Simulated assay, not measured.
Amino acid sequence: MTDDLVLYTTPMSRGRIARWMLEEVGAPYRAEIVSFGPGMKDAAFRAINPMGKVPALRHGDAVVTETAAICAYLADAFPEAGLAPPTGSRARAAYYRWLFFAAGPVEAAVTNRVLGVTVPGDPRMRGMVGYGSLPEVLDALEQAVGTTEYLAGETFSAADLYVGSHLAWGMGFGTIERRPAFEAYTARLTERPAAVRARVIDDALLADQGRASA
């Protein structure tokens, strides 16, 4: 039943990543569109996510927030979709590594660059910052996506979905520099049928919001 799996989202947010993941999983789900501003801060939605932000996922009685966690949860909850390598394997190690590398160092380094936050050059100060510097983060990511088709073995996984989403979004908005390895990698991922379906749904919702506010 679609009420068993509910995505709380808005079409111009990280909820696009969660929707793509749901489309890859293939299980029936329902989307609740939560508007920016008061809609995300009211008591009803804060009962789902006290942070008052999207995406959030409800699966029966379970609630998951944070986009990387949603991707990891869905991959495990629906193993038949084949979106996570076997537990205890080398591929699973790479899967965890790059999924959370994007959720941690990549997002922090990119956000700080956009906000104009500069990490001091003093090695002792830089050592306190988990990502070191944005160039170091992007170099590590370039090496990862440029030497293999997928991050966690021979097949697409939730790690590719999450990392690819960050790269595509960042290059599209100019917060991540375009590199041939990044462009080739994201091109392979964003034309997957599930990615296209998710994009069509969210773009249509975004267009509807635009017409409603005109």
Rank of each mutant, 00 (worst) to 15 (best):
G116H: 01
A140S: 13
G132K: 03
A43T: 13
A72P: 05
R188Y: 10
M40C: 09
A69S: 15
D4V: 06
I33T: 14
G146D: 06
P50D: 07
A84S: 05
G130A: 13
G170W: 02
G172Y: 08
P135Y: 05
L141H: 04
G172L: 03
T65H: 08
R58C: 08
A47N: 03
P120W: 08
G116I: 02
A18K: 02
R30Y: 05
T147S: 15
W20T: 14
A108P: 03
V129S: 03
M40D: 04
I33G: 09
S157V: 09
V110N: 02
E32P: 06
L7W: 05
F156W: 08
N112F: 12
E80C: 01
R97K: 13
E183C: 08
I17Q: 00
D122T: 05
I33W: 15
A214R: 15
D4F: 10
A84D: 02
E154P: 01
M40S: 08
G37E: 13
G153R: 03
L83I: 02
A187K: 13
Q143W: 09
A75I: 08
V106E: 00
M171I: 10
T186E: 01
G130I: 06
T65V: 15
G210C: 04
M51D: 07
E32R: 12
D139K: 10
R97Y: 06
D203Q: 11
L99A: 04
D61T: 13
T87I: 14
L138D: 02
Q143I: 10
R16V: 11
E183K: 11
L83D: 03
